[in-house]
Amino acid sequence: MTGQVLYSQLFYGGSGIILVLLGLWSFLVHAPLLRKLIAINLMGAGVFHMLVAIAYRGIDTSPDPVPHALVLTGIVVAVSATALALAFGKRLDQDDD
């Protein structure tokens, strides 16, 4: 593996880890539903970052398609979960009125 590939993987993967930590922090300290949901999605984005980073194999080499597919699946799952949680939140807001 060339240095360029390794540095890219570490840079993007490391950024992913930072996103995960920011999301986790936000999830733990903030009570409002919307902030928790954004936090969870941020964590998800961080994990997807890591997966995309390890898929990278250099500018001239085709990337590993498996992590790309996992990320696509993960995105759809994350969208579904977020939509359901928002509907829960909306229902609670309606009950308050």
């Binding site: 390794l6 993987q9 570490l10 993967g13 490391g14 880890i17 930072i18 995960v20 930590l21 986790l24 890591m50 980073a53 390890i54 898929a55 194999r57 085709s62 990337p63 590993d64 398609p65 498996v66």
Partner: peptide, 26 residues
């Protein structure tokens, strides 16, 4: 947690995983 994650990730990408599933899949 971040330290542990970063350390593990560093070891994982610099380790011997090689091509992972890329070659098989392609």
């Amino acid at each position: 947690v971040g330290g542990l994650l970063g350390w593990s990730f560093f070891l994982a990408v610099t380790g011997e995983a090689g091509e992972r599933l890329a070659a098989v899949a392609l």
